[in-house]
Nucleic acid binder design. Structure first.
Length: 382
DNA sequence: CGTGACTCGCGGGCCACATTCTAGC
DNA sequence: CCGCTAGAATGTGGCCCGCGAGTCA
């Protein structure tokens, strides 16, 4: 019904055009809230009317629309700017300069009922209780069997990330899939801090944002230019990478300045190409943890929860389903320069073959040209 | 209904080498 | 502590081949 034009609801509507999104119901007024259950953008009037219609509708969770682009659900509240921002705008605005990066932001909690009624804290409990209801929009249409399957699968791998979940739990809110997903990305940047926070600062009340010690932004994933276009690929990648993070190696990863922008002009860019320098920074912490540190895969760092409350399990399953919806299976290119080289290498039956001296010379010429045209950091071999 | 032969599609392995990273000095 | 160097590890794309699933007699 109202699901048309909402496919970009997951924060992708950031800076497409400057026009505010119109209400999906009346099609006349600018939307002010996004209803997660209906997947619809509504103006204040329609929101009040639709969600006051009955008790079920009144429990629909809504989030404010981004104040910057007015086209996507807000995911973060910037305290410094006193503005609600979607993930895209948040990333753009707060990666603009070092000062902006230090803005403290907190995830926006969904609201339900009357927008000026009960507090979000009260409503959170309701969401937990009603999460299994079909009108929450998360119910799997495939039926109970699939759900049980999902839950089993979810339980099998979601448990690998206890710290993150505990953070959300501490926050007292099960975020919508979009926000939660974003936090998973963010967690690449902030996992270290959150990990420590989880261990040593159980009293912290809200999702940890400040990150002064590393000079980077713990909330906004650094993205610019091409990298922003491949945010989703990075999501997947970073979700994977975060499991391999450890404190020492992540410190190195935090040293990047976030202003890297590479242009990729290869013909086969239909896969997610991650800016090389950024990814190399990431790879610092991923590929080979320095000796003397503990890899999460081999060490005892992951503390598997011995027992899950039904609420915990439900929350994890919901998060898993949301992630499952947004999974990206496209191959992610971590090093565009290596891709460029691989594409130019001679092959015999698909295998790389040794190059002749002539080919080496040609390749050197190509490398020089490519470097000047694309900005890749390709160093010709001598 | 069970079994063997055949086809089809998927996924892993292989290759060379530039790049990246670590250890040692 | 910093810089340099040597060596090891990593990642990249296209093709081949094995294996499982599906179909048919």
């Amino acid at each position: 019904m109202l699901k048309e034009e909402t496919s970009d609801a997951s924060g992708g509507g950031g800076s497409g055009n400057n026009w505010a999104r119109v209400c999906d119901t009346c099609r006349s007024a600018a939307c002010t809230v996004y209803c997660q259950a209906d997947s619809a953008y509504l103006c204040a009037g329609c929101d009040a009317r639709v969600h006051a219609a009955n008790r079920v509708a009144s429990r629909h969770e809504r989030v404010w629309v981004c104040e910057a682009c007015e086209r996507a659900p807000a995911a973060f509240l910037c305290k410094a700017d006193a503005a609600s921002l979607c993930t895209t705008c948040d990333a753009e605005i707060h990666s603009a300069n070092p000062l902006a990066r230090r803005h403290q932001r907190v995830p926006i909690l969904p609201i339900s009922g009357c927008l000026y009624g009960p507090s979000a804290t009260e409503l959170r409990g309701r969401k937990m209780a009603s999460a299994a209801e079909t009108e929450d929009g998360f119910m799997d249409p495939e039926g109970d069997e699939t759900i049980a399957e999902d839950e089993d699968e979810a339980a099998s791998w979601l448990l690998l990330n206890p710290g993150k979940n505990s953070t959300n739990q501490r926050n007292g809110c099960l975020f919508g899939g979009e926000v939660d997903d974003y936090l998973d990305i963010v967690e690449y940047n902030s996992s270290v801090e959150n990990h420590i926070t989880d261990q040593y600062n159980q009293q912290q009340q809200h999702y940890s944002v400040p990150n002064k010690s590393y000079g980077g932004d713990s909330v906004v994933p650094i993205q610019s230019g091409e990298a922003k276009d491949h945010l989703q690929q990075q999501q997947h990648q970073q979700q994977t990478l975060q499991f391999g993070l450890d404190y020492e190696s992540s410190k190195a990863a935090y040293s990047y300045n976030g202003s890297v922008s590479h242009s990729v002009s290869l013909s086969s860019v239909d896969v997610g190409i991650v800016p090389e320098s950024t990814m190399s920074d990431i790879s610092i912490s991923h590929r080979r943890p320095p000796k003397g540190t503990i890899d999460l895969f081999s060490g005892p760092s992951i503390q598997m929860p011995t027992q899950l409350t039904p609420m915990d399990r439900e929350a994890r399953v919901l998060r898993y389903r949301e992630k499952k919806k947004t999974r990206k299976f496209e191959k992610t290119i971590r090093y565009a320069s290596r891709k460029a080289y691989a594409e130019t290498r001679p092959r015999i039956k698909g295998r790389f073959a040794k190059r002749t001296d002539v080919e080496v010379e040609v390749d050197q010429m190509f490398s020089t040209t490519l470097m000047t045209e694309t900005g890749y950091g390709i160093v010709p071999s001598f």
